[in-house]
Computed example of a mutant assay.
Amino acid sequence: MLDISVIIPVYNAGQFLEKSVSSAVHFDEVKEVILVEDKSTDNSLEICQKLASENPKIKLFQHPDKENHGAGATRNLGIEKATGNFITFLDADDYYLPNRFDAEKELFKDAKTEGVFGAIGVDYLTEKGKQEYQIKFKDAPLTTVHYPAEGEEVFRGLLSLTSKTFGTFFHLNALTIRKSALKRAQLTFNKNLRVHQDSDFIIKLAYHCYLKSGIIDKAVAMRGIHDDNRITKIVQYSPQYNQRQLLYWKSLKDWSETNNLPSEYKKRIYLSYKSYDLAQKKGLTKYCNIVIEGLKNPEILKTKYRFNYYR
């Protein structure tokens, strides 16, 4: 049987936390639920303390200085404290479905498989949250990939280097990893990214570890959509969106250079980074830089971010 540590970073999620924890703690495969409280300003800490006192499988931690460090550093602390052989994540306003570990129980019998990912659905908790989500993401019922994949194909798909469309990112809520694989790859979340640290982690994980798709045609977890979801607040290609994307792709660019990735991968990451770098520029300077970069790397006009340049 799998022994799984479920890591839940907690920040101002008091109204959702009990449902999230109860969706995870009952699985036989779950050895422990690790709550890492990140200096919430609501009653989250009190709820964490109550839950931990009621069930020995639930463990509560805070950063040593009791300050707020963001989701990346908070998940890193959870990984450090985890004692299970497998690591999963769950956002404090989301929850697992009963089939969450059905694929994992079979796929991890193969020692080659270091991580398994699946699909997540959406649960509209407020009408405002629903409207904001649907404006940005239409009415996509699943966050998933379009076809089964494993190994390097997963990494190539995430970088849009496959011959067919791989699909959107899979979500941390639907990812299970061998802790030994994280240790071998020396992989942690980039604590300097306050947003997109999950996407950054997933791409790096897909390169360093052998991932395999599990249940991708139906949800194994649900994302709670409400008024305070950060994912719905940033307008695509707004200055704030461009700046956050720039920091995210710079993290990947620096990583690709440090790890000396094959030139095909480094170039794709560089072009994505450069598109957001160009988006920060204004006026004539911007268009001159676009022309110069286009002459050096014509492929930049073929990236999925190409329309970003002219805004």
Rank of each mutant, 00 (worst) to 15 (best):
L107A: 13
E153R: 03
E257Q: 15
K81V: 00
R230P: 08
V33I: 12
V21Q: 03
E106Y: 07
H69D: 01
Y310V: 13
T258N: 08
K274D: 04
A149N: 02
S199V: 02
K59F: 09
E104S: 15
E299F: 07
I120A: 13
D139N: 13
F108P: 05
K233W: 05
T232D: 13
L97R: 13
R268S: 13
K19S: 04
I269V: 12
M1V: 08
N99P: 14
V33H: 09
I7L: 03
V291N: 06
K302A: 10
S238M: 05
L247E: 15
V33Y: 07
Y124S: 07
G294I: 08
T285G: 07
N242G: 06
E153N: 07
K296T: 10
G118F: 06
G283S: 12
F27D: 04
A221K: 14
P9Y: 10
Y248T: 15
E293W: 06
S23I: 11
K66A: 14
A119H: 06
S213D: 02
P239Q: 09
R306S: 05
L252Y: 08
I234A: 04
H171G: 00
N76I: 08
N289V: 00
K31G: 03
D3H: 09
Q15E: 13
S199L: 11
D123V: 05
L125M: 14
D42C: 10
L17R: 09
T162E: 09
K191L: 02
D42H: 10
K281G: 06
I87W: 00
D93T: 05
